[in-house]
Structures are given as C-alpha cells and as structure tokens.
Design a protein around this nucleic acid. Structure first.
Ligand code: MN
Ligand code: MN
Ligand code: ZN
Ligand code: ZN
Lengths: 132, 132
DNA sequence: TTTTTACTTTAAAATCGTTCTAAACTACTT
DNA sequence: AAGTAGTTTAGAACGATTTTAAAGTAAAAA
C-alpha cells in the first residue's frame, strides 16, 4: 500500500504536506522523534513546512493511528512510528528511547481492571542508568 | 522522623516555604499532583508562595528523592508522593492516575539490559478506556 | 553574638513548546 | 466549472516553566 492509500484509508486527504511527512514517517523504519526533529528532516529534504502544519499533521496522524505519542516527562512531545503494542528502555540521562518488542516482556500477573473500564494497552518502561 | 529532619536528611535547608510544602506532601497520604494543584492547596491553607518557588522546591524534592515525577504526555508536569517502585492505571480520557502497588504486577520475562547500563526502575502503565 | 557566606525566595520578564486566528489555498463533490 | 469543506500558513497568543536579579534567610565562621 502506498502512502496516498495509507492516508485515504484513515480518512485523511493526501495533501502535499501530508505526503511529505508520510514519506519520512511511514517508510517502515521505526523511530522516536519530536516535531522539531521532523521539521529539520523536512528542511534537509529540500522542502519546508510551517511548524503549525507539522503539529496539525502529527495530531491527525496520531488520532488516526498512523503514529503514537510516547508517555514522557520531557517538555517536548515525543512521537513513535511503531504503532504496535511495545515497550521501551529509557536512558534517563539522555532521554533516548529504545524499543522493546512486545514478546520480549511477559506480564505474568496483572491487577484487576477497575469497574467500568477496559484495558486499552499496557506499556512497560525500563529506566536505565550508565553503569559505574 | 519529622519534616525538618526529612529535609535535613536529604541535604535541603528547612526553609519556611519547604516546610509548608513538606507538610502537604510528606504526610504519608500518596497523591498525584501538578505545581498548580499544590499552589492552590498552599493558598487554601492560608499561606501563599511564588510559583517560581513552587517549581524550585518540586525540582529539589524530586532530585533528592522525596517525590517522583510521573512519565506523562500531558502538557503539565505531574508529580507523585509515592516514591516506592509502583505502577499506574491511566484513564486516557480524564488523565487520572491510579496507583498499582508493585506486588500487583509480576514481570515474568524481562529483556536483556543493554551493555553498559543498569536497570534503574521498571514502570508499567495500564491505559484504560470507559467500557461501552 | 556578630559577621560572613552561601543558599533561597520573589515578582517580573523571558523562553519554549504548542495552539489559535483568519486569510489564502487546495482537494474533493456536484 | 462551480461550490464546499478541509488545509496550510505566518504570526499572534497561550500556558507551563525557567531565568533574572535584587532582597531575604539559614548556616558557618569568627
Ligand atoms: Mn510532559
Ligand atoms: Mn509540552
Ligand atoms: Zn517505541
Ligand atoms: Zn503513583
């Protein structure tokens, strides 16, 4: 499926700007990135895009399930092209995230889900410090 | 151990402002809160404090291990008085966090820690949606 | 106890990430 | 082709957090 189809599939118009972003983000190579990271990459690909458009697109892509947003206590929003349920290592010093595939962690015992709610995803974060 | 001792223990001067905050946060009742939540509580206790001081103190308290900061993709930083390793339910709609005690989750299989790093804490987040 | 020193608080300004506004533009429908 | 709804944009606005620099306070030294 090409990028135009991917966008249409989720109900997004394949505008020039969304196609530029899709080309960068939906190429199958998973990554974690910020809005600013993406703008730099757009710039260095010879294109340019308003930061408002980048935020608009990222929000649409996220709400349509094309990307995810990572839970992070950093100031800046971090996005993730890996939309499968998976987990992360976090280098607490640098903020770098490393994917852990879902099968690499086994949750043996889970607590009871509160009444009236359903589990909509489990994320494990393993924080890392440099060995001394 | 009283609050003055708790502050001295971690190398913080027990100033008037830090004692006010300690009285609110270090009373044994665990909670999740923002800087603004805390300022409101300070105000309604008949005191007042500059927002800069509140941020200064929260950062010091966090860096000294008296409180933790939660990994959250919300705009506003969320702090936690529960400093034991534990986990959370997250109501994705409201942002509400509910503690899950460490024993309630059993991680059966863990991935290998990357070379040169040590595990400095595991956090599980269980996202919740309202049942339809 | 007084003096000195380093640390802390504060209001206000600055900064930074993100969202809003409103006008111009573009994709899709008829 | 014309109409309509959705999109992009620069720039303004916003909200959370940090910085500034001056005044205040706690601890250490004398
Ligand atoms: Mn955050
Ligand atoms: Mn943010
Ligand atoms: Zn990831
Ligand atoms: Zn908690």
């Amino acid at each position: 499926m090409n990028n135009k189809e991917k966008l249409r599939n989720v109900g997004l118009r394949p505008t020039k700007q969304r196609m530029i972003i899709a080309k960068i983000l939906l190429n199958g190579v998973n990554r974690h990135f910020t809005a600013e990271n993406l703008q730099n990459e757009i710039n260095s690909s010879g294109n340019s895009m308003s930061i408002a458009t980048i935020y608009n697109c990222l929000k649409k892509f996220r709400n349509c399930g094309l990307i995810k947003q990572v839970e992070s206590s950093k100031e800046t929003a971090i996005f993730d092209t890996n939309i499968n349920q998976h987990h992360h290592f976090l280098d607490e010093e640098t903020g770098e995230l490393i994917d852990i595939e879902n099968e690499e962690i086994n949750l043996f015992k889970l607590p009871e889900i509160p009444k009236g709610y359903v589990n909509s995803g489990v994320e494990v974060l393993i924080k890392l410090r440099r060995q001394i």
